[in-house]
């Protein structure tokens, strides 16, 4: 575990210096300012508009970090061959992969919590539990996307892994809508496809807590526990699949 932590710490230090991280942090701050301005334009819904736009900003930037940093994490190590020096030491590929993932997770947690604290303070110190639930729902989604992108990046190019990660996020978010549309259309093939997707994809629509409504009506602890369990199972499954591909991967740079 110590070696995994060493890799995670090093990955975190590396990612925090990435230009793309600063770009997403800047975008989050810009949308946050925009949310403050938009809120002021409203007659009686300042806080609601501010919260909705801010939560949207956090979800988009955390999704962006998951896609772009998660998609290039392994590819960069292999292309630069930095992983050779690390893997020459007595560290298994499992520990290395887990360390890389944990480094990015750590970055996401710190980034997400800082933004949430900012929103919590700016919105007049509402329910801490409710804000925490919103943070968890956004974090869980980005964690699953991250694991999915990591899985793909063991076998395909970063650009393809990032694109597929985005499709994974969009489809997982739209499962309910797609299922509804399929039932309305009465097309058997469409219904079959949405049923298959319902089994093969995590239900992000259940995790859509990023609204001001959640702040007023926070979910119960057992609901959060269920989401935690669901996310853990999906993340572990995707991570183990990623490990199966990574375990026997030839570490040669792409031409």
């Amino acid at each position: 575990m110590k070696r995994t932590w060493v890799i995670a710490r090093n990955t975190f230090k590396e990612l925090i210096r990435e230009k793309i991280f600063f770009v997403f942090a800047a975008v989050a701050c810009l949308i946050f300012l925009l949310a403050l301005l938009l809120g002021q334009l409203s007659f009686s819904e300042q806080n609601k508009i501010f919260l909705d736009v801010s939560f949207f900003a956090i979800e988009m930037t955390m999704l962006g970090l998951s896609l772009f940093l998660g998609g290039s994490l392994l590819r960069r190590e292999v292309d630069r061959q930095t992983c050779l020096l690390i893997l020459a030491r007595p560290i298994s590929r499992f520990e290395f992969l887990l360390g890389q993932l944990l480094g990015l997770v750590l970055l996401q947690i710190i980034f997400g919590i800082l933004l949430h604290i900012l929103i919590w303070c700016s919105s007049g110190f509402g329910s801490g539990w409710a804000h925490f639930c919103v943070f968890l729902s956004i974090f869980y989604k980005s964690l699953m996307v991250q694991c999915f992108v990591l899985l793909l990046s063991t076998s395909v190019r970063s650009s393809l892994a990032i694109s597929a990660g985005l499709v994974f996020y969009l489809l997982s978010n739209a499962l309910n809508d797609l299922s509804f549309a399929a039932k309305k259309s009465k097309d058997e093939f469409f219904i079959l496809i949405t049923n298959i997707m319902g089994v093969c994809l995590p239900h992000f629509d259940q995790l859509n807590l990023k609204t001001s409504w959640t702040i007023e009506n926070p979910p119960h602890a057992d609901q959060i526990l269920f989401f935690t369990l669901q996310t853990s199972l999906w993340s572990i499954f995707l991570f183990l699949l990623a490990y199966i591909f990574w375990r026997k991967k030839d570490l040669v740079p792409t031409n």
């Binding site: 230090k13 590396e14 061959q81 930095t82 050779l84 020096l85």
Partner: peptide, 10 residues
């Protein structure tokens, strides 16, 4: 102990 060809360091 191992040193690869043209190593890239952090």
């Amino acid at each position: 102990g191992y040193l690869p060809e043209r190593p890239y360091f952090y």
